[in-house]
């Protein structure tokens, strides 16, 4: 069995999760501080990929990253770099599709943050970046981890936009999801089944890991609460 699709899927999901992690937190933090009207508009735009069919996302990506399109052409001329039909094209697809999951969960976590903690730190003389990394992020840890894992799981399973922008080339752009479709289409039912099982195993493992993380985080709190009583 050729394991390339597994390796490719994991690296695409990993790279896009890292991207989404920083962009999602940044967007959540700054959008929350904007005036209401701007916030409403930006919020719609940033959440849209969650509800749009992935093929529509793929269409938009091809419109801007394709070799004869503005960004695609510029990258080709300046760096001799193709942005479509290569393995990392799928990163754009999965990053855009999974971004809203991170953005929305992080925003929810930031909105539940107790602002008096930030004010207290300010009056004690601590800088705003110190407050962000040492108080706000730890306080919102649960939401941010949940958002990251959800985004990773979604990125791993991306199909529609990936198929459009990266296509299916065995050993080059094949991912688990595109491989399942290709094998099933060509009548290799047993091959498709194998990859279905691989995908199920990874997704189950990821979700189990999340649940265990949450439990681990909760246990000392309960014990502590009892002790205080």
């Amino acid at each position: 069995m050729d394991w390339y699709p597994l390796f490719n899927s994991l690296r695409i999901a990993a790279v896009s999760t890292v991207l989404i992690f920083f962009l999602g937190i940044l967007a959540a933090y700054y959008v929350a501080r904007l005036p209401r009207v701007v916030k409403g508009i930006l919020d719609v735009i940033l959440t849209l990929p969650l509800v749009l069919p992935p093929t529509v996302v793929g269409y938009f990506l091809l419109r801007i990253l394709g070799p004869r399109r503005p960004i695609g052409l510029w990258m080709l001329e300046m760096f001799d770099l193709r942005l479509t039909m290569v393995w990392y094209s799928a990163i754009f697809a999965s990053a855009v599709v999974a971004f809203p999951l991170m953005y929305r969960t992080a925003r929810g976590a930031f909105e539940s943050f107790d602002m008096t903690l930030a004010y207290a730190a300010q009056t004690l003389g601590r800088s705003n970046s110190w407050i962000f990394w040492r108080v706000r992020m730890p306080y919102c840890k649960q939401g941010i981890i949940a958002g990251t894992v959800l985004a990773f799981a979604r990125a791993l399973g991306e199909y529609g936009a990936t198929a459009m922008i990266a296509g299916y080339t065995p050993g080059r752009t094949a991912t688990i999801s595109t491989t399942v479709y290709q094998l099933w289409r060509t009548g290799d039912d047993a091959g498709a089944m194998r990859w279905v099982l691989v995908n199920l195993a990874i997704s189950t493992a990821v979700l189990l890991a999340v649940n265990m993380l949450e439990k681990k985080d909760r246990r000392p709190r309960r014990a502590a609460a009892e002790e205080a009583r």
């Binding site: 008096t116 903690l117 004010y119 207290a120 300010q122 009056t123 003389g125 108080v135």
Partner: peptide, 20 residues
Amino acid sequence: LSPQERHVGYLFQNYALFPN
């Protein structure tokens, strides 16, 4: 002046201790 520069101590109603 920013709160950092004012050197004014503020005891909040809920004490605002850092939970972490």
